[in-house]
Amino acid sequence: MDTLNLAEFEAEPSPKGRASARAGTRDSTKSRLLGRALLVPVLVFFAILNVIPTFWMIGLGFYDYTLGRGDPKFVGLDNFVIIYESAEQWATFTRTLFFMVVAVAFEVGLGVVLGFLFWGSAKMPGRRLALTLLFTPMVVAPVASGLFWKLMYEPTFGVINYVVDLFGGQKIDFLTDVDWVTPAVLAVDIWMWTPFMILMTLAALGSVPTAELEAADVDRLSFYQRVRHVIWPHGKFILMLGILLRTIDAFKTTDLVLTMTGGGPGNKTEFLGVALYRQAFNSFDLGRSSAVALVLLIIAIALTSIYLYVLNLSRSR
């Protein structure tokens, strides 16, 4: 530095402008009102497309109403009693529960492991490309995925049976064999939704403050101690949200199964969503199908409540 610039050491703070503060308050009131006005169209659409149909469905559940068979007749709780007493309905429920538990368990397990691996390899070359490729199944429509996998599983010219044949194995008709159909559908669901759990795991890990992770390094914490005292307390909310969303989604799996198996062979893959679809759009029994839909809704609400309860419990500890 050749010349002294003492002026830079003489800086003084400038006074705050009160007038600009008042103008700021007026602006914020305006923008709040504008924000609310912009919400109105969304709320109207939400009411027309969600709220009214839901109440309509709840009402229909108490009627005996089949399209083309005359006017609806109020039957009280009859539809629910029939569902409760139907062995077939209970079998469907158990099947759905099994599918949900196995699918979610694999998706969460694989998603968390892969999420941790991707998190720990931030400087790996090609990481972004690998993540993009991994997320592809999640963004493909389930109907497209179902058709695509149906072709893959095809016994005559499907690529999976080609590989089985290549290794000298016996060709398997995955989608009509009662022993293979459930694992085959499960595999596709896991393929589709594990990336979602990877994403949620990465988001959960991203929510952990860097200072805490660095402190864990300084303090030489083991992997278990890091997970227990640093990662889990911060990441659990996002991770639990991911598990909840997957649980509800797996519970109402319909489109994938319909395109792959149509609920068959027999009713081996007839889950609640598929049964509901068949009752509503094959038999046109709107009363009974509305009752089944209401049961599904109650189960979804129950699962959400359990999630919120668990979260509140851990927060209050």
Partner: peptide, 21 residues
């Protein structure tokens, strides 16, 4: 040398405690 092997203590700007303990 990596942090965990430097044998030092550190106090961060953000008060770090290990939750659940």
């Amino acid at each position: 040398l990596e942090t965990s092997k430097r044998n030092l203590g550190m106090v961060f700007q953000y008060p770090v405690v290990y939750r659940g303990a």
